[in-house]
Design a protein around this nucleic acid. Structure first.
Length: 430
DNA sequence: TCTGGGGTCCTAGGACCC
DNA sequence: TCTGGGGTCCTAGGACCC
């Protein structure tokens, strides 16, 4: 029987901000999305106010101000760095699978069931001591049950953590069904808005109801993913922990604009900038893209004038060379650009990612393979040099002219905290 | 005025082939 | 010329996650 833990940092972005602002420990705090648009992380005080995840900031700003809340623009550089430190610590306790920026599965088959609570407390104390981060830990026999366990611990910690104190184990726990009954089916991992509606009609309201539901009915109505969830709730292991992180299958870069873009050139600047960012990621994981797509859209909340469109193309020669990808992207952009629109967002995506080092012999009568090889090498060395300079002198030091110099459309983040851990100029002074 | 971004997995349906 | 079944591959879109 396998045993797995799920470690999840509470209110991660908010908690990252509080590391360097201990004075905000009991103050209501939110972290906002790009352009300071939505609330994406909330402290417990904010949750108690009834502010929902992804609430538009402009709608609740007054209420938050009245409550004395502090709002931060998101600082992904900071959160990424803290996340790396968390994962390094967790890896000391066993094989981990990094699931997201703030949570990881931990293989704890080497820990006796009777020792799990103590083990979890050690992890919790360690993260509190070394990084000042609050965390919940759930142990169980499957990943889905570990998520459930963590959810129960989290609910409890919102109320002050009197019962479980952030750590709970469902392994050989005689009260497991009672605990599952206390959890809303909507809080089960993989049961989203649509699935909730379906299962409620069948009289399934709690995680326990779901556990004992008809697997035939689930398979017919929630498909294979639903069936796997039910099997895992019953302690049957269908998803394994995978500690090797696979390369991405697709890479997307998109942003809403700080202010609307109306000109073709403005869109070109944005698309060029997003291609630059995405192809850096592509080269970092040593991949080339064989398919590229570009999309644009106007404000989706303005129904009367809404326009969105996308175009994609297969690349006859897969590449990760920024100038070539920009060229292709501009061709696609031309097809979807319509004058007279107030564009609010644009994005690019790469799919069909292939290993960069696997050499492709192009079986094409009209391609001069030797010349191709030569220009490939040249492109590679240019990319290498640019990436190196940008790493050394900061991202954006060398860019294509097509990215534009002024970038009037750039995202706003007026309330970003300093990069305490990654930038010498912004380090905390004591 | 102001409403995020980046992923994965699955399914249905079309095109094509034998 | 018409007819049938079965398989694969690709793409678009839906649902979900954090």
């Amino acid at each position: 029987m396998s045993r797995v833990g799920l470690i999840d940092i509470n209110n991660f972005y908010v908690s990252c901000e509080r590391i360097f602002r201990p004075d905000l420990q009991n103050t209501p705090v939110v972290v906002l999305s790009n352009n300071d648009g939505c609330v994406v992380s909330r402290s417990n005080e904010i949750k108690k106010l009834g502010v929902n995840m992804a609430s538009p900031y402009f709608k609740i700003k007054d209420e938050l101000d009245k409550a004395g809340a502090v709002a931060f623009s998101s600082n992904y550089t900071l959160y990424g760095d803290i996340s790396g430190r968390v994962m390094n610590i967790l890896a000391e306790y066993g094989p981990i699978e990094i699931y997201s920026i703030d949570e990881a599965f931990l293989d704890v088959s080497h820990v006796l069931p009777s020792q799990l609570i103590q083990f979890g407390k050690e992890i919790k104390d360690r993260l509190r001591r070394d990084l000042s981060l609050p965390v919940c830990v759930g142990f169980a026999e499957t990943k889905t049950l570990a998520k459930v366990a963590n959810e129960i611990a989290k609910e409890d910690s919102k109320k002050g953590g009197l019962v479980y104190n952030g750590v709970i184990s469902l392994v050989e726990n005689p009260q497991i069904d009672e605990l599952l009954e206390s959890l809303n089916v909507a809080d089960v991992w993989g049961i989203g808005r649509q699935n909730v509606l379906k299962v409620r009609q069948k009289g399934i309201y709690s995680a326990k109801d779901l556990k004992y539901s008809s697997q035939d009915w689930i398979k017919a109505n929630l498909a294979i993913t639903g069936l796997k969830i039910v099997q895992e709730l019953n302690g049957q292991n269908v998803t394994e922990i995978t500690s090797t992180s696979d390369p991405r299958k697709g890479i997307v870069s998109s942003r809403s604009f700080g202010k609307p873009v109306t000109t073709f050139q403005g869109l070109q600047e944005a698309v060029s900038t997003y291609i630059t960012r995405a192809s850096e990621k592509l080269r970092k994981q040593k991949s080339v893209a064989s398919y590229i797509s570009v999309f644009v859209m106007t404000n989706r909340f303005d129904r009367s004038n809404y326009y969105s469109n996308s175009q994609g193309a297969t690349l006859s020669i897969p590449t990760n060379y920024t100038p070539e990808l920009v060229k292709q992207a501009f061709k696609l952009l031309e097809k979807i650009y319509q004058p007279g629109m107030q564009y609010k967002k644009a994005g690019v995506a790469f799919w069909g990612l292939l290993d960069e080092d696997k050499t492709f012999q192009i079986e094409d009568l009209f391609t001069d393979n030797q010349a191709l090889e030569k220009s490939n090498l040249k492109q590679k060395s240019i990319s290498k040099a640019v990436d190196k300079l940008n790493r050394k002198y900061g991202s954006g030091s060398i860019v294509l002219a097509s990215n534009g110099l002024k970038q009037a459309w750039k995202v706003k983040s007026d309330q970003r905290s300093p990069n305490y851990t990654t930038d010498w100029d912004e380090i905390l002074r004591v």
